[in-house]
Computed example of a mutant assay.
Amino acid sequence: MSYEHPLAYLIGIEGAALLRAFTGEHDREFVEARLADVRALLADDKLANGVEVTQLAPREGYARWAAAYDSGENAAFADEPHLATILDTIPPGRALDAACGTGRLTRLLVERGHQVIAVDGSPEMLSHARADETLVADLRELPVDDGSQDVVLCGLALAHVPDLAPVIAEFARVLVPGGHLVLSDVHPEQVQRGSIPSVRTADGAPARVRTNHHRVGDYVRAFLNSGLTPVSCQEPTPAPVEPRHVPGGGPWDLWPWSLNGLIPDALAAAAKDVPSMLIWHCRKAA
């Protein structure tokens, strides 16, 4: 169980903005405005209450999210153009979509002529996927033969595993020599700022899908220890979006996004040039 308080998020973003000012990015007027914001936030009775939040295992969390996963606007799906560009450079072959979810990236592989096995730990998510073969499996024990895949694709999943090493080692095991590993995930900077999936438990209580903070170096070490060489690493930044003002910060289900409109100037400063995602392309030694 964790405890989420709107003031904790809002003052945290103000603090991030103030740290950037402390290192020379902003002037005295900006600093005084941020401090005034903090005082006003602390005095706002509408922001006085926090929320107890259950931490769900990924399998349970995604089972609850499966029906609505592809509906509405999901900013994380901005990885698709970056992944498509990498996949365009790889010849058709045998491909594994690991942690395929509802199969949104399986489509990218199929469109490029790959023969696709789609694997996910959630039967509920996997039921929406369309591939040559679908399998329920854990990423640490893939039901795929050694050296049988030309491509392994994994999108928005590895932040949910506690240790990258055994999963990356499995990806390397199933790749042919010279095979390609293509990954995307939410950037660790965004995970630290609350970019974590929210769901509701069976009784309607607030819950988050358990998410871990893997640094860029954690990925690099896992790749190198598994015989994979990074070809490229992209850290795209999101286009600036004017946060929408929601009186009182909105319901918990919309946190932290609905809180951003209460601190637009601090948010703009704190978020400037902060990456939204990590996009990796690696190759296994030939």
Rank of each mutant, 00 (worst) to 15 (best):
Thr89Gly: 06
Ile13Pro: 05
Val144Met: 04
Gly101Asp: 11
Arg28Glu: 14
His114Gln: 09
Arg208Pro: 00
Ala207Val: 04
Arg20Trp: 08
Leu262Met: 09
His214Ala: 01
Pro81Trp: 10
Gln55Ile: 06
Pro177Ile: 06
Leu126Gln: 11
Thr54Pro: 00
Thr201Ala: 03
Gly72Lys: 09
Ala285Lys: 05
Glu111Gln: 15
Tyr62Glu: 08
Arg34Glu: 11
Gln55Pro: 04
Arg39Trp: 05
Ala205Gln: 14
Gly101Phe: 05
Glu141Phe: 03
Val136Ile: 14
Pro162Arg: 07
Ser2Pro: 00
Gly113Pro: 13
Leu156Lys: 10
Leu139Ile: 03
Ile86His: 03
Ala33Gln: 13
Pro243Ala: 12
Glu52Trp: 07
Val144His: 03
Gly261Val: 03
Pro230Lys: 01
Leu175Lys: 02
Tyr3Met: 10
Leu41Tyr: 12
Ala33His: 11
Ile279Met: 06
Thr54Gln: 14
Pro264Tyr: 04
Glu124Thr: 11
Leu7Val: 10
Ala67Phe: 10
Glu32Ser: 14
Ser195Phe: 13
Asp203Gln: 11
Gly179Ile: 04
Thr134Met: 04
Arg244Trp: 05
Gly248Met: 13
Ser184Trp: 01
Pro247Gly: 12
Gly24Gln: 12
Leu156Met: 15
Val152Trp: 02
Ala159Met: 12
Leu87Gln: 04
Pro177Tyr: 06
Val152Thr: 07
Pro230Val: 02
Asn225Lys: 03
Asp163Thr: 04
Leu267Pro: 06
Tyr219Trp: 07
Ala98Asn: 06
His214Pro: 00
Arg200Gly: 09
Arg208Ala: 03
Pro240Glu: 10
Gly248Val: 13
Thr85Ala: 15
Ala76Arg: 13
Gln149Tyr: 02
Glu32Leu: 13
Glu133Pro: 05
